[in-house]
Design a protein around this nucleic acid. Structure first.
Length: 817
RNA sequence: GCCGGGAUGGCGGAAUUGGCAGACGCGCGGGUCUCAAAAACCCGUGAGCUAGCGCUCGUGAGGGUUCGAUCCCCUCUCCCGGCACCA
């Protein structure tokens, strides 16, 4: 008997597909097939492909191939997110220029993808570090700049001392650098930002257009945007007369304000403390805060804080209350100062207790008893009735909040407002491996965008790219010196580069027309492909890449460059590939790589292992499902059986096929089609295994199975494209590529089981099983059930009180107890 | 602390609308073939009781609804992920 040998089959088809130029999306206007844009998050070239890529792309490719077989004109592009810190750091470690290292990895990954049989539209490949790409990243920056969406400001920012660069808030995880894990520091620096906060509300409003996003990603984004409705209330500093606004979600507690707190970084703190004669006490707190990261792991002690020696006047009642500076108030949220209501806020309560500030109850809980005679043991933060609040007494939350806001606005001491947690996106980096920010600083004209005709501003190659205190570009002797585009005078280039997430915020648009020279993308091509029909990628981008891309798309929409507001209506997150319950890492020594598996058992087996291991969105623990690379995977053995069975079925030609097999084939087509639509690869493969098992039985009985074999081969193609192509040609003798389909259809009547098992229960317990025709009626089913000896014995001499009949599935006799 | 998702055999996991729990696969046990082994193929495989027909128990724990619950409701435990002084 012939033997399945992936190492003989697969390289042949890699070469054949390459030679005939398969998998190109058609731009022919006469091509009337519906278009389908299947996009996988593009990889980062920091080495060869890892297990995460293998998992994600096995799934993404199955979808792309499935859609193509169904008759869609599929765009399934590939490219590389090639700029950025990891590649740069790896290059530095190896002592080679980042470009050299990056391009070498790209070629390796491209070769691996080809060996895996990914159905990419190769001529469209792009990479973000290519000047022909980042020219347009820079062009987009200048458009943002013109619209006031890119701006420079000095502010406290996240600084990674190890990578020697600033980081976006989104890149700080629990106070640590997302990339290297170093403790992030806080520095006051002048940096470039994108005004994503202008789009905060729209990022929420357009959520209904994200028709198929994982719920957890939506909640993460919602939480990150962090919308709070409330009021801005203006307090006056008694000693200076200046107004200091605060944000509160509970203006109904204004009558319970007993002190006022500034963030230690608030610009007024030093001045007020000096005025109040307390600066010597306050300054150590300020110094301490400066050294702590913005997203510090340790929340500041809510009790820590110092009296400033000045007072604030409560606008609702004119009361004078003490002002403090305390680290528990964040400069980054709200206005950097708060009105403190200890009776109704946990942190304010703890602070008040520690500093001997009075606690005044102004919200009475529904059950007044829980106030314990007015002596609070903890803050009451729930809803209730206003008390001790002048004319507002008796009003109930939440209606009271609106009433107070209306009154504040009438009084001119406050306004209803919305506050967001989202901060502007810090995009400048003091590193070499990114697109230079296309701005020229002119002593006369200020910040001037590099004219379109001068783009791209190319990265110099003769530069010491190692990270240092400033940008490597600043250290180049000549690069930054240019004439001002506006006045012609001496000026200097901005020497920072852009965050790599800027590059990846628009790559999906570039894929639609990768060689386009008149803009970042051809509007007609984008109109015909976008939005992406199915986006696949890791959940680690739940906030970063996905939020930024949504923001970019909305800006482009406002610019009239695209006609849609959301780029990715459908998103699927594949699970992580882990090992022994933990992520794979060099330090743990538990790294498994896909290519050795491909070499040993073939790409088809590797892909099937990934997709059969469990639901696509669940994590895969390779320790549990992968085993030793030298041990033959179960799916490989299965492919061997398929190879044999399809071969035998083909040899028997048109020998009659049992009706049962034909029915199973139709049922399998129905099930696999539905499973593929829902990313249920594991159950789809299981159904194919059931079909191939049945084929084996039929063949062993001497019957034919050719049409089952043909359908099986077609349905196998999205998962195991090589063996499917081989069987299609060599065994079934079909013309063309199996990848062109067409995807098999099914007859709904044939997809029904011809008989089902009728369950006979007595008091809910299964007592008999009877094979009955699918179309059996209730009366016949009941008659059969009554005739069951097993059921009769179980009923015994008890009386049947009720008969539940659900033909054709079940009859339940309920006896009188 | 808050938000989201989970918990099913030795393992990965199946199970339309509430209707045979454990599909499919791995592993394991037995067998065929072989001088032997590997491979391949066949049979078995939730637990307990039983000579057998069969019976009982069983989807994290406890309760509820129902003729019937892995599925719906309530309470709880544990696990994973995210956020974490957000005023």
């Amino acid at each position: 008997m012939r033997r399945y040998d992936a190492s003989e089959i697969e390289p042949r088809w890699v070469a054949a597909w390459e030679a005939e130029g398969r998998f190109h999306a058609s731009e022919d206007p006469a091509d009337e097939r519906p278009r389908f844009y299947a996009l996988d998050m593009f990889p980062y070239p920091s080495g060869d492909l890892h297990m995460g890529h293998a998992e994600a792309f096995s799934g993404g490719d199955a979808v792309a191939r499935f859609k193509a077989m169904q008759g869609h004109n599929v765009l399934h592009p590939i490219g590389w997110d090639a700029f950025g810190l990891p590649a740069e750091n790896a290059a530095i470690k190896r002592g080679v220029p980042p470009a050299e290292w990056t391009y070498a990895n790209i070629e390796q990954q491209a070769a691996s993808f080809k060996r895996m049989g990914m159905s990419f539209d190769w001529p469209r490949r792009l990479n973000t570090c290519d000047p022909s790409y980042y020219r347009w990243t820079q062009w987009l920056f200048t458009r943002f700049f013109e619209r006031g969406l890119a701006y420079r400001k000095r502010s406290p920012v996240n600084w990674c001392p190890n990578d020697a660069t600033v980081l976006a808030n989104e890149q700080v995880q629990q106070g640590l650098c997302e990339r290297c894990g170093a403790v992030v520091e806080r520095r006051d620096l002048t940096q470039w930002f994108f005004r994503i906060t202008d789009y905060a509300q729209r990022l929420l409003d357009d959520e209904p257009e994200l028709v198929d996003w994982p719920e957890r990603v939506l909640t993460m984004q919602r939480h990150w945007i962090g919308r709070s409705q409330g009021a801005e209330v203006r307090f006056t500093i008694k000693e200076t007369g200046e107004e200091i606004p605060v944000f509160t979600t509970r203006p109904d507690t204004l009558w319970g304000v007993t002190f006022f707190v500034f963030s230690v970084e608030h610009p007024a703190v030093r001045r007020l403390a000096e005025l109040g004669g307390t600066w010597d006490d306050v300054s150590p707190l300020v110094e301490k805060a400066r050294a702590t990261s913005l997203n510090s792991r340790e929340a500041a002690d809510a009790k820590e804080g110092v009296f400033l020696g000045v007072h604030a006047v409560n606008p609702v009642n004119g009361e004078e209350i003490p002002c403090y500076a305390a680290p528990y108030v964040l400069m980054e949220y709200g206005t950097g100062a708060i009105m403190a209501v200890p009776a109704h806020d946990e942190r304010d309560f703890a602070f008040a207790r520690a500093h001997g500030v009075p606690v005044r109850v102004v919200i009475q809980p529904g059950d007044a008893a829980s106030l314990d005679g007015g002596a609070l043991h903890e803050a009451f933060i729930g809803e209730g009735v206003m008390v001790n609040s002048g004319t507002f007494d008796g009003q109930e939350t939440p209606a009271s909040i609106g009433a107070v806001i209306a009154w504040l606005e009438d009084q001119g001491s406050g306004t209803g407002t919305v506050n967001f947690r989202l901060r502007d996106w810090l995009i400048s980096r003091q590193r070499y491996w990114g697109p230079p920010i296309p701005i020229i600083h002119c002593p006369v004209c200020g910040e001037v965008a590099v004219p379109d005709a001068d783009l791209p501003v190319e990265l110099p190659t003769d530069v010491d790219f190692k990270p240092g205190g400033d940008s490597p570009l600043a250290r180049h002797p000549t690069w930054k010196h240019v004439a001002c585009p506006t006045c012609g005078g001496e000026a200097t280039r901005d020497t920072d580069t852009m965050d790599t997430f800027v590059d990846s915020s628009w790559y999906y648009l570039r894929y639609c027309s990768p060689g386009y020279l008149d803009g970042p993308f051809d509007p007609a091509a984008v109109a015909s492909w976008m939005p992406v029909d199915q986006y696949t990628g890791g959940v680690e981008h739940a906030i970063l890449h996905l939020l930024y891309s949504r923001f970019f798309t909305k800006v482009l929409y406002d610019m009239g460059m695209v006609t849609f507001r959301e780029p990715f209506p459908r998103l699927m997150n594949q699970g992580q590939v882990i090992f022994g319950g933990a992520s794979m890492s060099k330090s743990k020594g538990n790294i498994v790589e896909p290519m050795p598996i491909v070499q040993r058992w073939g790409a088809d087996s590797m892909r099937l292992m990934m997709l059969f291991a469990g639901p696509f969105e669940d994590d895969i623990d390779w320790k549990l499902v992968g085993g030793d690379v030298d041990r033959r995977p179960g799916v490989h053995a299965w492919l061997g059986r398929v190879y044999a069975a399809v071969g035998e079925a083909a040899e028997r030609g048109d020998l009659a096929e049992p009706d049962g097999l034909a029915r199973l084939t139709h049922r399998t087509v129905k099930g696999v089609t539905e499973d593929l639509e829902r990313f249920r690869f594991n159950t789809a493969i299981s159904k194919l295994q059931i079909l191939s098992n049945e084929m084996r039985t039929v063949l062993d009985a001497g019957a034919g199975a050719r049409s089952a074999a043909r359908a099986l081969t077609l349905m196998l193609a999205p998962f195991a494209p090589f063996i499917a192509e081989e069987l299609w040609h060599a065994d079934l003798g079909e013309p063309g590529s199996v990848a062109d389909g067409p995807w098999p259809g099914f007859d709904p009547a044939m997809a029904l089981e011809d008989s089902v098992t009728l369950i006979v229960q007595v008091d809910g317990r299964v007592r008999d099983r009877i094979e009955v025709p699918t179309g059996i009626g209730d009366a016949d089913a009941l008659a059969l059930a009554k005739a069951s000896e097993n059921a009769q014995r179980a009923v015994g001499d008890r009386e049947v009180a009720r008969e539940i009949v659900r033909a054709p599935k079940l009859v339940n006799f309920v006896t009188r107890q």
